[in-house]
């Protein structure tokens, strides 16, 4: 298969990349890992005149912890995320998401920024970004802005990123002690999957009485974008964490939060049912982690 013809740009800095973005605007696309974009170009699903590769910009490749925040550069690969001790320890659901994506070859190229910009409702790291309440860092030549990840996705394949902007990374507050998180994805086979349903849950408890101080649930593949399970979260607010309340939250996620459709990967009915199962399971696992089990 042939790629269409395009001009290739390989900026060495964010500033250089932003200058190119400003020049070419909608005629340019950012190339990160290329595991989606190059496939879409080969299949003639998108067109492009200028490709701006950003994978060699050092500042986009860093994972850092500073002042209670973890920042993750946009071009950190899934393999690097999965291998990072810091991510594994502090943001375990993000590690799980990164580890679940595609297969070992894809994970060596696919980036977290690319996963976000691709904005697939099934994206493997997106549920984790949602439950950790990540901020998306967007820059243009004027400066930077941060957008809560829950506002970042606009529709399938669409985000709120502007033509002159570059997603440079994510900022996530380090979850406090007494918190836990879990991610489960469900597909037809055990590797190289495109998810039928995927769910991440985060929970923070008061160790004294097991009361839920904070809970966030993210549902994938059941709406035009990955979404937060708002109703399910309401069910949990202030309650004592146990199987009964998790079941109620799962029911709320299944009944009220998710709006799945039928497609060739699965029916709405199955997806809805699985939202219930996975919400309950991720909450239970998150609680066990919060309790240090």
């Amino acid at each position: 298969m042939l790629l269409p013809r395009f001009d290739f740009h390989d900026p060495a800095s964010v500033q250089e990349a932003l200058d190119l973005k400003k020049t070419y605007r909608e005629n340019a696309r950012i190339l990160a890992g290329g595991t989606d974009l190059l496939v879409h170009l080969k299949k003639d699903l998108v067109s492009v005149e200028h490709l701006i590769s950003v994978t060699k910009i050092d500042e986009l490749l860093k994972i850092e912890e500073k002042g209670g925040d973890i920042t993750i550069g946009a071009c950190v690969t899934m393999a690097s995320l999965a291998a990072s001790g810091l991510i594994g320890e502090k943001l375990p659901a993000l590690k799980q998401g990164a580890q679940s994506l595609g297969n070992h070859l894809i994970r060596n190229k696919a980036t977290i920024g690319g996963n976000a910009c691709n904005a697939s409702p099934a994206g493997d790291t997106l549920c984790a970004l949602l439950i950790y309440d990540a901020a998306v860092i967007l820059q243009n030549s004027e400066g930077a802005r941060e957008v809560p990840v829950s506002d970042f996705f606009v529709g399938p394949g669409k985000s709120c990123i502007n033509d002159d902007e570059l997603l440079t990374g994510f900022r996530i507050a380090v979850p406090p002690a007494g918190s836990g998180a879990d991610y489960i994805q469900l597909g037809k086979r055990k590797s190289s999957e495109i998810n039928v349903v995927n769910v991440a849950s985060y929970i923070e408890i008061d160790p004294a009485n097991q009361n839920i101080l904070n809970a966030r649930i993210a549902l994938g593949s059941v709406a035009p974008t990955p979404i937060r399970g708002a109703k399910a979260e309401q069910v949990l607010a202030g309650k004592t964490a146990d199987d009964t309340v998790f079941f109620e939250a799962a029911e709320a996620a299944r009944r009220d939060d998710c709006k799945p459709i039928d497609d060739f990967r699965g029916t709405a009915g199955y997806r809805q049912a699985m939202i219930g199962v996975l919400t309950r399971r991720t909450l239970a696992a998150a609680l066990a982690q919060a309790q240090g089990k």
Binding site: T35, L38, V39, K42, T55, A79, L105
Partner: peptide, 28 residues
């Protein structure tokens, strides 16, 4: 040719990748 099968696997700077999803120009 779309990164689904792994037949084109090469080691690029120490990591295995699908070479059908790497631009030659990127390997400078």
């Amino acid at each position: 040719d779309t990164g689904d099968c792994g037949a084109c696997t090469v080691i690029l700077d120490g990591d295995v990748v699908n070479s059908c999803l790497v631009l030659a120009i990127q390997t400078d």
